[in-house]
């Protein structure tokens, strides 16, 4: 499973974004993180293989989330569902 990395000066947290290539909210999340210099990794789930999709679903649900996109997982424990500027600000100290 190949994640793409976006570099940024705000790199205190490990930020992983699960997105869809076609999703406008996912694009907004990517733009928001980039505009705020947040370092993050992302994967477009719709472009993954069936096996990878299933692994991602299991991972998100094991963290207590639903398989909806965008989903942001911060430091492997805080899960943010949807494009939630307020929650991203609070969690990442933006």
């Amino acid at each position: 499973m190949e994640f793409s990395k976006v570099s940024g000066q705000n790199n205190e947290h490990k930020v992983v974004l699960y997105a869809l290539n076609t999703c406008a909210w996912c694009k907004m999340t990517k733009k928001y993180l980039k505009d705020n210099n947040v370092e993050y990794e992302f994967i477009d789930v719709d472009l993954c293989t069936p096996k990878e999709k299933e692994k991602i679903r299991e991972h998100i649900m094991s963290k207590g989330g639903s398989p909806v996109y965008p989903t942001v997982i911060v430091d492997n424990k805080i899960l943010i569902t949807g494009f939630r500027k307020d929650k991203l600000e609070e969690t990442l100290g933006i």
Partner: peptide, 15 residues
Amino acid sequence: IEKQVRAYEPAKATQ
């Protein structure tokens, strides 16, 4: 949720 996970069921079949 039972409809959402349908997108992943072909993966289970593949495994």
